[in-house]
């Protein structure tokens, strides 16, 4: 494991912790897209099918369990928690899941490395993860005042994707035959979706003003 990969995983972990902190301690999910969280739960459920068939390392298994557990508990909190669910911006969070899920499934059925159930599901999870942030970005754009924790959550998620690209560049040069076009293209697309957000995030940070995305 290289430093970029580790830093990427830790940033991903931090993003989840920031979100859980907001939901668990402040008891609010204002500005958080349930649609995006449900898509992430689906991403991890379809990607980590190998958790029961292949053992890679303790680190790998533990992280998979954390991402599965946290994504499903976040969805549970927003949908069912007595207090948290009242802060959910239902009327603003209107992105339709299937507009992302169906094209990703079709693409995975046609463009994959190997036509097996596990491999197609893995590929579907890569495509879906690439676009899963869209409902959250749309919601941020509609939210007038984005609170610090929500802003940091999205920033950390974007940073995690960026660090994975450096990880792939590093692995390409240090490991023989390390070529995964599908993973790389999906990962680059995913990172590019954050470009606009990053721009406004740094601007607000530089000028010390509240983060606000132009409509």
């Amino acid at each position: 494991m290289n430093i970029f990969r580790l830093a990427g995983d830790m940033t991903h972990l931090a993003s989840v912790l920031v979100l859980l902190l907001k939901i668990h301690t402040i008891k609010s999910c204002a500005g958080v897209s349930l649609k995006t969280q449900e898509l992430y739960a689906l991403v991890f459920a379809t990607r980590y099918l190998d958790i029961v068939t292949d053992f890679i390392s303790v680190y790998n298994t533990v992280m998979k369990l954390i991402f599965l557990g946290s994504s499903f508990s976040i969805v549970w909190y927003i949908r069912h928690h007595r207090v948290v669910r009242r802060s959910y911006d239902k009327d603003q969070d209107t992105f339709r899941h299937y507009l992302l899920m169906i094209p990703c499934m079709l693409l995975a059925l046609f463009v994959h490395e190997k036509f097996t159930f596990k491999e197609v599901m893995w590929t579907f999870s890569l495509y879906l993860e690439a676009v899963a942030i869209l409902p959250q970005l749309v919601l941020l754009q509609r939210t007038r005042n984005i609170d610090n924790l929500t802003g940091q959550y999205v920033f950390l998620l974007g940073a995690y994707r960026g660090l994975y690209i450096f990880n792939w560049i590093y692995r390409y040069f240090t490991e023989p035959h390390f070529v995964h076009w599908i993973t790389w293209i999906a990962g680059v697309v995913q990172t590019l979706l954050y470009a606009d957000f990053f721009y406004y995030y740094f601007e607000s940070w530089k000028n010390n003003v509240r983060l606000q995305l132009p409509a």
């Binding site: 390392s57 596990k118 893995w122 994975y164 035959h177």
Partner: peptide, 10 residues
């Protein structure tokens, strides 16, 4: 990591 389906990344 040679295109075989051992996915060691998260």
């Amino acid at each position: 990591t040679d295109g075989e389906s051992t996915h060691d990344e998260l």
